[in-house]
Design a protein around this nucleic acid. Structure first.
Length: 439
RNA sequence: UCCUCGGUAGCUCAAUUGGUAGAGCGAGCGGCUGUUAACCGCUAGGUUCGGGGUUCAAGUCCCUGCCGAGGAGCCA
């Protein structure tokens, strides 16, 4: 009696007759002995065939199988240090489920365009497999963390009637002869949710039509946005750092194999312990000005106090820290209308960005929200936003206003940093970028 | 949108000053009883991104179009 077993569960089945359902990852032969590397989604096993034992017909049939043929292999499972993974199957039978002729992704190198064109197949490769398992762990970690603190998951609409943060970066779509826009953020709706449940989060895809062509941008990316009523900026930053610490340690604990495959420097992740440093925007400006005087010949480091930071600036600021950094109290002019002004300095807002270490840049942006009706109305007008569209949002200040704070975490940027990979496009199964809508 | 670079075999790339279109991988065939991106031998495989131009001669130089990559700005 053959038992169907997943490769991840092999340690419980040594010595048994089992079968594995999967795909042919690669094969090597040496005369009368054949090594099939079979993957089943949970791992890879080396299946060994002897011509003498299985007979000429099956041996030749197996030898002719192309990479990624689907098959069910049966045989005895045993430990063997010569096999990759430490276990191997001594094959007694093979059922060929589906052939695979001229599989495009060979074991050697390929270029980015080619791999992206074959993203639906590229997902099967070891590295992509590892990254997306870490993505799964990160998502599960965030949800468990927030659920464990009593947050309610309250998801927000993707079709929206107008811009939340203004600007021209919205995707427009037809909505029964009216215009609708794909959501850039769920935050305003999450605020409504926080007034109902106290602590909520939304998690879903967001869309930005920015004409950005860099490794840090997708047009469709996933954002996690917690929002807590009666919370202030300090509480917001504490929540953000606790959450990041929790998830990083969870990935270290549960996805060590995947991190190893990606050759991630584990030590860098083990440093991620709270409290994370907090520095003000003004202090960052000092750092940038000091850097500029010490590196007068370097291009791209020019900086005007009052401007927002560019990618290079973020790296310079984050360079001297071994853990994520929280920059707070930005100038109000460069931030969104809904951020509350700092009581000690009206020109600054109670907002913060979390910058990941190792040059990975901004992964979180958050703030305490403006809670006063009249002030918020004034801000909406100052930003030339259509007041009618924000009546419901103003209602949240009209009926039982409270302080409220939250943040948005860019999922793919966080995954890219944790994995230590180069480009955001590998951190999502099917990336959408300015020049990439397929497959 | 701007700057830089690129497009040659299914894939990754090479081709000297403008002078016969090449290799590795993959594929096909053959060999090998412990391989680790196995190895060894043979074979097939090309409208050099499209259009125009210069020249005795263009993958190579010029013009133009298309596509892509890296970066900037903008942002998570």
């Amino acid at each position: 009696m053959k038992k169907r077993v997943y490769i991840a569960d092999f340690s419980d089945h040594v010595g048994e007759e089992i079968e594995v359902a999967g795909w042919l990852y690669n094969q090597r032969s040496s005369g009368k002995i054949l090594f099939l590397l079979v993957r089943d989604g949970t791992g890879i096993v080396q299946a060994v065939m002897s011509k003498k034992e299985v007979g000429d017909e099956l041996f030749e049939q197996a030898k002719a199988l192309g990479q990624e043929s689907s098959l069910i292999v049966s045989g005895a499972l045993r430990k063997d240090d010569r096999a990759p993974g430490g276990y191997e199957m001594w094959v007694s039978g093979i059922e060929i489920v589906g052939t695979s002729i001229d599989y495009p992704i060979s074991p050697k190198e390929h270029g980015t365009t080619f791999l992206m064109d074959h993203r639906h197949l590229w997902l099967r490769s070891k590295r992509q497999h590892a990254i997306l398992r870490i993505r799964h762990e990160v998502i599960a970690g965030f949800r468990d963390f927030l659920n464990g603190r009593g947050f309610i998951n309250l998801d927000t609409p993707i079709f929206t009637p107008n811009a939340a943060e203004g600007s021209t970066t919205l995707f427009e779509t037809d909505y029964f002869n009216a215009k609708a826009y794909l959501a850039q953020t769920g935050q305003l709706y999450a605020e409504a949710g926080a007034k109902a449940h106290g602590k909520v989060y939304c998690f879903g895809p967001t869309f930005r039509a920015e004409k950005s062509k860099t490794r840090r941008h997708l047009t469709e990316f996933w954002m996690l946005e917690p929002e807590v009523a009666y919370m202030d900026l300090e509480g917001d930053m504490e929540l953000a750092e606790d959450m990041i610490e929790d998830v990083v340690s969870r990935v270290l604990d549960r996805r060590a194999e995947e991190l190893k495959l990606l050759e991630r420097d584990i030590g860098k992740l083990e440093n991620i312990k709270t409290p994370f440093p907090r520095i003000t925007y003004e202090k960052c400006c000092d750092i940038l000005e000091k850097y500029k005087t010490e590196h007068p010949d370097e291009d791209g480091v020019e900086f005007e106090r009052g401007e927002d930071f560019g990618a290079r600036h973020e790296s310079i600021i984050a360079e001297s820290y071994d853990r994520p950094l929280m920059v707070h109290r930005f100038p109000a002019e460069i931030k969104a209308f809904y951020m509350k002004r700092a009581p000690e300095d009206e020109s600054k807002v109670l907002g913060f960005d979390m910058l990941a270490p190792e040059g990975y840049g901004e992964i979180i942006g958050g703030s305490q929200r403006e809670d006063d009706y009249d002030t918020l109305l004034k801000r909406i007008n100052e930003h030339n936003l259509p007041v009618e569209a924000f009546q419901w949002y103003l209602d949240l200040r009209r009926y039982g206003t409270t302080s409220s704070a939250g943040f948005g975490l860019g999922l793919e940027r966080t995954i890219t940093w944790i994995c230590g990979i180069h480009h955001l496009r590998e951190a999502i199964p099917f990336p959408r970028m300015m020049y990439r809508l397929n497959p």
